[in-house]
Write a protein that binds this DNA or RNA. Structure first.
Length: 596
RNA sequence: UGCCCGAUGGUGUAACGGUAGCACAGCAGACUCUGGAUCUGUUUGUCAUGGUUCAAAUCCAUGUCGGGCAGCCA
């Protein structure tokens, strides 16, 4: 029996929610002995942060209760699906669960073989499953599913229907109005069997006939009004090729795929709640020998300033409003990854937002906070100037150099120190100087003093401008007595600025990202989500950075001091020519105050 | 005039008949060679009305509001 209570002394207690409570209760009551969940994406798009919530839930439960979570492609609609998506989904999940729940990942044999119809498809589990293991596919069960459909026909619980799509709609009625029986509802078992055989044999064109469950056309639940379970589609399938021209629908395929894999808890989102009676009906009618899976529903994630529907994300990609599914501004898992968001931060986020049946709107600030919290602990501090202005220390000789020790990460002493060099000419940030500053501006002003981080205090003596009044350079005096360890080291000034040595620094491309939408609810009624795209969601500039940033290890995490967290873009960076992406900014109290 | 589900501060969540707590956001302060981090304090909440009970966010009834359901999508 699994341990359901949090381990005493465990630093991060396991989360609790109503689904985990139900799982615990099932275990405690002996209704199940091993927890088996599944994550069943349809390979018709890339995974996004909403899927990440579901992945963290399903794998988190498997992890917490010593169970297994199968990865299954829910691929029953050949018209919409593609292997490109299969591959991206696998990569995204591996990234998200790596080192956390990868030991719970259940995979199937890559060669599905031809097992006995209805037999259990056991999972291969382990951190190194080997090349023979791959995701499960609902399409690997087409033969089983077909056999189950035949059995349903034999039991008089399914029939072949010749109604056109339009007629089918009309006969279904409406939520507040019962439907009518199909004229084909009472065909004999023999005739149904023959017709279904001929459907499979390809004798009829697309849409000519369907196989329907025979339930109740007057049910107040529309999904019980003789739902379609097979349709004719003369379309090649990305995984089964042209082996089939009839394909099962979701409601029929999903519950039985769960059954075939021995799933105990089939967790899905709220919109499937009304499908649950159908899920249970199909499994019950078939009188199956093994324990049945059960469906549980939770609210999908809605995030402010974000769109989450696959259709809209696909539109952003197709209309070239972003550079691709993995554009770092996208809420896709691949976008988050390319943006430099650590997988652990995504998991922390998923845990903090909880799991309920309430359909709310989560503030994207919760995600941003989880990212900062994670990066603050691990990112190496560096000096970089995004929008440089030249600053001349007039009391230093042109070849004079002072070396200072800079701390790599104050949160992690083990990360050590490095040397930065102060020269006569340096760059500081444009924002860090104002000729006529507002109240409470702590940065540099004419006649004012600030500290150059890790170096010394300077005083601004003169502002040099061109004919147009643009600032050319600032002429300042360095007080070397205030350097670290110097006689006046303890002298206090209000502001400390980041800076780089002009001759030492190198220019690199930096990409500043902002939220993709300007409105909290881009999908609000009565507006096109495109109308609130943020025109400033991407800003590209050439920054001056300290030499230590010129050739980063791929995957390095940095904090550019006072600017935010950056990392080298894994796609566009080249050796010696990094492209830095800003994962997220620092909390900026001054910007907030200045905006008022 | 159908069926299903939901409702706790600004937001997301906890409390499983017995002190309304946590996180984010906000505000104020301390500290700081990052206006970061950290620390402290703090504003704001049980949808409404009845009922059961010594005691209700929790149980019951009614109402209000919100979401979902009528693809040969998942």
């Amino acid at each position: 029996m699994s341990e359901s209570a949090p381990t005493p002394g465990n630093a991060t207690p396991e989360p609790t929610d109503f689904i985990r409570d139900l799982v615990s209760a099932d275990l405690a009551a002996g209704r199940v002995t091993q927890i088996h969940t599944r994550f069943p994406p349809e390979p018709n798009g890339y995974l996004h942060i909403g899927h990440a919530k579901s992945i963290c839930l399903n794998f988190g439960i498997a992890r917490q209760f010593d169970g297994i979570c199968n990865l299954r492609m829910d691929d029953t609609n050949p018209a919409k699906e593609d292997v490109e998506y299969v591959d991206s989904i696998i990569a995204d999940i591996r990234w998200l669960i790596d080192g956390w729940a990868d030991h719970c990942l259940g995979l199937g044999p890559r060669d599905a073989g031809s097992p006995e119809p209805g037999s259990l498809r056991s999972a291969v589990v382990g951190r190194t499953p080997g090349p023979d293991a791959g995701p499960f596919h609902a399409s690997n069960y087409f033969e089983d599913l077909h056999a189950f459909a035949v059995r349903l026909i034999e039991k008089g619980k399914a029939y072949v229907c010749d109604l056109t799509p339009e007629e089918t709609d009309a006969y279904r009625g409406a939520p507040d109005r019962p439907g009518r029986n199909s004229p084909y509802r009472d065909r004999s078992v023999a005739e149904n069997l023959d017709l279904f055989r001929r459907m499979r044999a390809g004798e009829f064109p697309d849409g000519a006939r369907t196989l329907r469950a025979k339930i109740d056309m007057a049910s107040p639940n529309v999904w019980l009004r003789d739902p379609l379970i097979y349709r004719i589609r003369h379309t090649a399938h990305h995984h089964t090729g042209d082996a089939w021209c009839i394909y099962p629908l979701y409601d029929f395929a999903h519950c039985l795929s769960d059954y075939l894999e021995g799933i105990t808890h089939s967790i899905c989102t709220l919109e499937f709640e009304v499908h649950r009676p159908l899920y249970d009906w199909i499994l019950t009618q078939l009188e199956l020998p093994r324990p049945l899976p059960h469906q549980f529903e939770f609210a999908r994630l809605n995030l402010s300033y974000t769109v989450m529907s696959k259709r809209k994300l696909l539109a952003l990609v197709n209309e070239n409003r972003v550079t691709g599914w993995d554009d770092p501004r996208m809420p896709t898992v691949s976008g988050l990854r390319r943006r430099g968001v650590p997988a652990r931060a995504v998991r922390t986020f998923a845990q903090r937002i909880g799991v309920t049946k309430y359909n709310g709107l989560t503030d994207v600030a919760v995600l941003e906070h989880a990212i900062r919290e994670d990066l603050n602990a691990i990112a190496l501090r560096r000096l970089a100037v995004l929008r440089p202005i030249r600053l001349v220390l007039t009391n230093l000789a042109p070849d004079e150099v002072h070396s200072f020790e800079a701390i790599n990460n104050p949160e992690d002493p083990a990360s050590g120190t490095r040397t930065v060099r102060l020269t006569r000419e340096v760059y500081i940030e444009e924002d860090d100087f104002m000729e006529t500053p507002p109240p409470k501006y702590f940065r540099l002003r004419p006649g004012g003093e600030v500290r150059l981080k890790y170096a010394c205090i300077i005083r601004c003596d003169e502002v040099v401008k061109d004919a147009a009044g643009r600032i050319l350079e600032l002429r300042c005096t360095a007080d070397l007595d205030t350097r670290t360890g110097g006689p006046n080291a303890a002298k206090k000034v209000k502001g400390t600025l980041h800076w780089v040595s002009a001759p030492d620094s190198v220019g690199v491309e930096v990409r500043l990202l902002d939220r993709l939408f300007t409105e909290e609810l881009p999908e609000a009624e009565g507006r096109d989500f495109r109308s609130c795209l943020n025109p400033k969601s991407l800003e590209v500039l050439t920054a001056r950075v300290e030499p230590a940033l010129a050739n980063p290890e791929p995957g390095s995490r940095f904090q550019f001091e006072r600017l935010g967290y950056f990392w080298p873009d894994p796609v566009d960076s080249r050796p010696g020519h990094p492209v830095y992406v800003r994962t997220t900014g620092l909390k900026d109290t001054w910007a907030k105050a200045a905006a008022k």
